[in-house]
């Protein structure tokens, strides 16, 4: 395991959305802050900093994690994916994103990146979930605008479209 002094700056290298990137930061920097401030990946949002709201969810090696409960150093050398990876290079929305637009599954859009990243992971492992399973995963996120009705409709549409 890499050992560093707490006052020493560290260079962290990882793969972000398919591209190798690196930046210097303090060992105590959270992954969410590192992504937003050092790597300019501002699509990942910080909503509570105590792991409840789910806004900051990203994927590390394909698994959805709370980037506010992860140190940047823990992502060293790993494959990190954020909401910026979802649309095509031409900006075309993917199936899940499109279902969100079709069903008015977002209003302010602040919680949305985290929800998309959770379900990108979940649906890749469970392509045909039940409604209860969708609800169970969504209950790891707080959305204050939509009342969740549009999000559930979007998730069902995305699953049915397969």
């Amino acid at each position: 395991m890499r050992r560093v002094n707490k006052d020493q700056k560290v260079r962290i290298s990882l793969t972000l959305n398919g591209r190798k990137v690196s930046a210097e930061t303090e060992p105590r920097t959270l992954l969410c802050d590192f992504l937003r401030h050092s790597l300019a990946a501002t699509g990942t949002h910080v909503g509570c900093e105590h792991g409840v709201c789910g806004c900051c969810t990203v994927q590390i090696d394909g698994a959805a994690v709370r980037s506010c409960l992860t140190l940047a150093m823990q992502a060293e050398g790993r494959d990190v994916r954020t909401v910026e990876s979802l649309a095509g290079p031409d900006g075309k929305l993917n199936k899940l994103q499109q279902a969100f637009q079709n069903n008015h599954a977002l209003q302010c859009g602040f919680c949305t990146p985290g929800i998309l990243m959770s379900f990108t992971d979940f649906l890749s492992r469970n392509p045909k979930p039940t409604e209860d399973e969708l609800r169970e995963v969504l209950s790891g996120h707080i959305c204050r605008c939509t009342g969740y009705a549009g999000i559930m409709a979007a998730l069902k549409e995305a699953v049915a479209a397969d």
Binding site: E84, L106, P113
Partner: peptide, 19 residues
């Protein structure tokens, strides 16, 4: 009519104050 706002917000291209 579906929202014009959505494609940017769904792609991490929102422009919130801290961004």
């Amino acid at each position: 009519v579906v929202r014009k706002e959505d494609p940017a917000l769904l792609s991490g291209r929102g422009r919130y104050a801290d961004d």
